[in-house]
Amino acid sequence: MNDVAHETITGPRKLVKMANQIGDFFKSYPEETAIEGIRDHIAKFWNKKMQHELFGFMDSEKETGLSALVEKAVTKLR
């Protein structure tokens, strides 16, 4: 069955996906709490290199794919 294209996202796109997933959990909280929750989670669980890779991606790309909420939280983290 070689017609199946195997898809695995890597690099910054994967980080964006992970960050958005975190955002999805916190989005039902009031915005302030949500932003703090997302910021804190990334600060605690992602190593510095992953964090910097995401920052770099935000600087270089116009369309990062990050949700607005996550973008705010990550900006606060920097």
Binding site: G11, K14, N47
Partner: peptide, 18 residues
């Protein structure tokens, strides 16, 4: 004092060469 990589992150990093 900086947290390290989790297993999936290690593998991602390995694929990316780091």
């Amino acid at each position: 004092n900086e947290q390290g990589l989790r297993i999936p992150n290690m593998l991602d990093e390995a694929v990316d060469g780091g």
